[in-house]
């Protein structure tokens, strides 16, 4: 459905976002090219999720411009619903529709927004459920699934809209440790198939192995960015080093 755009998929310039007095993002410039997997890391409160949510306008930026697939979403008159059909989003808390079956979760927006027939929507949904390994649970209620399965359904739901860009907002942070792997495996497959992805994550191994680029966000600015081996393996900035020490070696935190 989505036509490949020649330019960058996401282009952010001078992005600022404040919640009241508190300035969460303080001048972000970021370009994401087609097929790139960009992992955003940083301490809680550094603005990672806010940055992601500004891209599909779940948060309204205070200043700056964002272009998604060539459309300026910061234009006050943008048809944001149209842009969002091309941008899939996966949330930390899954946010599946509890009153609908797994299959209906994946067909609702297809029928409402893309006006696909029931048969076509179900075919697309089943293809994507198969992709995440849950075709056999199509008639289950979301509440009957484990957290990892729910998150995989959420990914299938987003993919059913044939997005050109996928946003992942800490997709494994709410999961029991033994369920993290199945979700990361689906995301890895997706990346290998060439999906453009922006991933806010605390999974450093995923960022290292799957990410094309890692961005370290600190106090609302991009402090360090580059290939995973460089940012995660040999960080230049002292604050990046401190953050990685805390994440990778949590039992030896220096209490200051």
């Amino acid at each position: 459905m989505s036509t490949p755009t020649p330019g960058p998929v996401v282009e952010i310039a001078g992005l600022h976002k404040s919640f009241g007095e508190r300035e969460v993002l303080r001048g972000i410039d970021l370009t994401v090219r087609q097929g790139e997997v960009v992992c955003i890391i940083g301490a809680s409160g550094s603005g990672k999720s806010t940055l992601l949510r500004c891209i599909n306008l779940l948060e309204q930026p205070t200043a700056g411009t964002i272009h998604v697939l060539g459309t300026e979403v910061t234009d006050p008159d943008v048809d944001i619903d149209r842009v969002r059909t091309h941008v899939g989003m996966v949330f930390q808390q899954f946010n599946l529709f509890p009153h609908r079956s797994v299959l209906e979760n994946c067909t609702l927006a297809q029928r409402q927004v893309l006006h696909r027939s029931t048969a076509e929507a179900e075919a697309v949904a089943m293809k994507n459920l198969e992709h995440v390994g849950l075709a056999d649970r199509a008639n289950s209620a979301p509440g009957q699934l484990s957290g990892g399965q729910q998150q995989r359904v959420a990914i299938a739901r987003a993919l059913s809209m044939d997005p050109a860009l996928m946003l992942f907002d800490e997709p494994t942070s709410a999961l029991d440790p033994e369920l993290v792997g199945e979700v990361l495996a689906v995301m890895r497959t997706l990346a290998e198939e060439g999906m453009t992805m922006l991933v806010v994550t605390h999974e450093m191994i995923f960022a290292r192995e799957v990410g094309d680029r890692v961005i370290f966000l600190d106090d609302g600015v991009i402090l360090e960015e580059g290939p995973p081996d460089q940012v995660l393996g040999a960080p230049r900035e002292e604050r990046t080093q401190a953050f990685l020490r805390r994440v990778l070696d949590p039992t030896h935190i220096d209490p200051t």
């Binding site: 599909n56 779940l58 619903d81 149209r82 969002r84 059909t85 941008v87 899939g88 989003m89 949330f91 808390q93 946010n95 599946l96 529709f97 609702l108 927006a109 409402q112 927004v113 959420a154 739901r157 987003a158 809209m161």
Partner: peptide, 17 residues
């Protein structure tokens, strides 16, 4: 929950839908 609205809107559904 607010997440329900965000999920629907992020799929491109209008506020009415």
């Amino acid at each position: 929950p607010k997440g329900q609205i965000e999920a629907a809107r992020s799929l491109g559904m209008s506020s009415g839908a």
